[in-house]
Design a protein around this nucleic acid. Structure first.
Length: 581
RNA sequence: CCGCCCGUAGCACAGCAGGAUAGUGCAGCAGAUUCCGAUUCUGAAGGUCGGGGGUUCGAAUCCUCUCGGGCGGGCCA
């Protein structure tokens, strides 16, 4: 919370407590313990700048009606020396507090004093957090879900950094296991088809049918010719994978970089396969007696562990039975570990080996079935599963000309992230994909998204910024020296539109913390739109250039606060804040 | 069948550790520029918060049942 806002809330709380204490000692209120109460910002400023529900909360303890309690507090309250001007009682018994002019000037001074750091806080207390997002399969191109996940993850990481966490962005590369074999097989067949014709060798239904596979095979053929047709299948597939996989990964890096996403760490799944951590993890499960063998495979006792967790959460055995929990395979009958096994080892690596305090994964909602068993497995190896938070993101549905566009990696006809970035400016993509909370389904209208018009909220925000820059330029051009302002001068900003802006500026820090708590960067894009709206309203209601020199300076001061805040937030989200457009 | 997510104005969405008259944008209607950027602003209109029950001073918000949409329940990832 901003320093000033925090101070103000504490002043209110203290004033209420003092008033109640006084009333109790004078016998106006019964000598009962004072119960917990809230201080919040009402939706409608007609109900004050801050309000408290203390009177309603106290009805039971005091056995008095809330209105009477409120009046008693009001009679005893003293607001001298605070940022509050007055207090009123309203409705069922709300105590509504009104800010004094000193509050408004203090907020503006604080915005300027903090500069680029305005909005930062130490809420996260320097905790190490790992945000893993996108983590697309390197076997094919990235799709629109990755576009949303990328914008969401990167911006979440950014606001967490702002809220005082030590953030690391991570991409998990699935470079091992089944899908890599399938990748090799698909490449192999495309390669053979180049020489033998499409009908000679058939591509199985469940392999990768994308155009990119054909391309990689073709590129490979351009380098090595048909020489690998002679070689063994294993050797040929390995060579194809060794060529195509790094190429795909490089492409992903380049594309994400264009999307302004830079990872701190690209983590290869193969690492835990090769460095013994996967084996250690399985040994740990074995040692804890949570595995068994069946049908030649090694199984994890998910039912047992998860039942224990659910019972601890207060679920009944009946309810748990209805879930029809299942055990999961760790090592297949063919000796290969499953994705699940590797994933346990990977999360153990994040939380135990690399000692992150919190791991956040952003997954498509279609993976939600994986969450419970992942957490159960972490508990099973002695890692507190509450340190893992999974954000399930509803998949994006594309529409074009009002019709849904299918996005399947298999058909090879999906609109890729590369396509998207060619069509839509990065600023707009990053902003638009952060307009909705992760959990809500999202229709992405390609026609509208491609449209570079004022309908696009990002332009609306950027325009507000450019407009302010233009005003400042105009003042300078007129030979007006913008200077610092005294508190008294800033207190000339009494228009409702001016006060609205200042109150909104005051809420930034809390807004960011709230967005972090809810893992919802969309709150910040909405905050920015609101700030731009409030500025445009002010612009239409008040003129910066005016007769009163002090008022003009105060308004210029306000403009600079808004300009800098918009720029800070946009830059935080890695979106440009142009000075003209 | 079981589970998770979603259902708020014509459309897209906020609001959800209970609070005051349910908000914002777009579309549509009526207006505003001799003046700092009209990519802007002002106003009116638009609602059984999917539906029924419950909890209480108070429910869009919590519980329960129900209806509709999305997704999942692989020795796939």
């Amino acid at each position: 919370m901003s320093k000033i806002v925090n101070e103000t809330q504490q002043q209110i709380r203290q004033a209420i407590l003092d008033a109640m204490g006084k009333a109790i000692s004078e016998g106006a209120l019964p000598a009962e313990p004072i119960c917990d109460f809230k201080i919040e910002v009402p939706n409608d400023t007609a109900n004050g700048d801050f309000s408290s529900n203390v009177a309603m909360m106290s009805t039971k303890a005091f056995r008095m009606n809330p209105r009477k309690i409120g009046e008693t507090i009001l009679e005893n309250i003293n607001l001298d020396g605070t940022y509050l001007e007055r207090c009123e009682i309203a409705g069922p018994g709300f105590l509504n507090f009104y800010l004094s002019p000193s509050y408004y000037s203090a907020i503006l001074k604080d915005v300027r004093a903090c500069g680029k750091d305005y909005g930062r806080s130490s809420y996260g207390k320097g905790k190490k957090v790992n945000v893993e997002f996108v983590s697309a399969n390197p076997t094919g191109p990235m799709h629109m879900g990755n576009a949303r996940g990328g914008a969401l993850g990167d911006c979440l990481a950014a606001i967490m950094d702002y809220a005082g966490y030590e953030v690391s962005r991570e991409f998990y590369i699935n470079d091992a296991g089944n899908q890599i074999e399938k990748f090799g097989l698909s490449l192999d067949i495309r390669y053979q088809q180049l020489y033998k014709g499409e009908d000679a060798v058939e591509l199985p239904e469940d392999s990768y049918h994308g155009e990119d596979i054909k391309e990689r095979a073709k590129e490979f053929a351009e380098i090595y010719g048909d020489s690998y047709l002679e070689k063994s299948e294993d050797e040929r597939r390995k060579a194809l994978i060794d060529y195509a996989l790094p190429k795909n990964i490089d492409n992903m890096k380049a594309t994400l970089s264009k999307y302004r996403i830079e990872y701190d760490k690209w983590f290869n799944e193969s690492i835990v396969h090769n460095n013994g951590e996967l084996k250690d993890t399985i040994e740990l499960l074995k040692a804890n007696g949570l595995t068994y063998e069946k049908d030649g495979a090694l199984w994890y006792k998910n039912i047992e562990v998860q039942t224990k967790m659910l019972l601890a959460q207060g679920k009944t055995q009946d309810a748990i039975d209805k879930l029809e929990l299942k055990d999961d395979v760790l090592i297949r009958a063919n000796g290969n570990p499953t994705y699940f096994a590797a994933d346990i080892a990977y999360h153990r690596n994040k939380l135990e080996v690399r000692k992150f305090d919190i791991a956040i994964d952003i997954w498509g909602a279609d993976h939600h079935g994986h969450v419970a068993r992942m957490k159960s497995a972490l508990d099973a190896i002695g890692v507190d599963s509450t340190r893992l938070d999974v954000i399930l993101m509803q998949l994006v549905r594309l529409t074009r000309n009002g019709e849904a566009v299918r996005m399947s990696k298999r058909t090879g006809k999906a609109i890729t992230l590369v396509d998207l970035l060619e069509e839509i400016p990065v600023d707009a993509s990053r902003f638009l994909f952060n307009m909705r909370e992760a959990g809500s389904q999202m229709d992405f209208d390609l026609d509208l998204a491609v449209e570079q018009s004022s309908k696009n909220p990002v332009y609306y925000c950027q325009y507000a910024h450019a407009r302010i820059c233009s005003i400042i330029k105009k003042l300078n051009a007129d030979g007006i020296q913008i200077r610092d302002c005294s508190d008294e001068e800033l207190q000339l900003l009494t228009d409702e539109t001016e006060k609205d802006i200042i109150r909104h500026l005051a809420s930034l820090t809390e807004e960011i913390v709230d967005a972090v708590k809810k893992y919802d960067p969309a709150k910040i894009t909405r905050y920015t739109i609101e700030l731009a709206t409030l500025f445009h309203k002010f612009y239409n209601a008040c003129r910066v250039v005016c007769e009163d020199e002090s008022l003009m300076q105060a308004r210029a001061y306000l403009c600079i606060c808004v300009r800098d805040t918009i720029k800070n937030i946009l830059n935080l989200l890695k979106i440009e804040a142009p000075e003209s457009m």
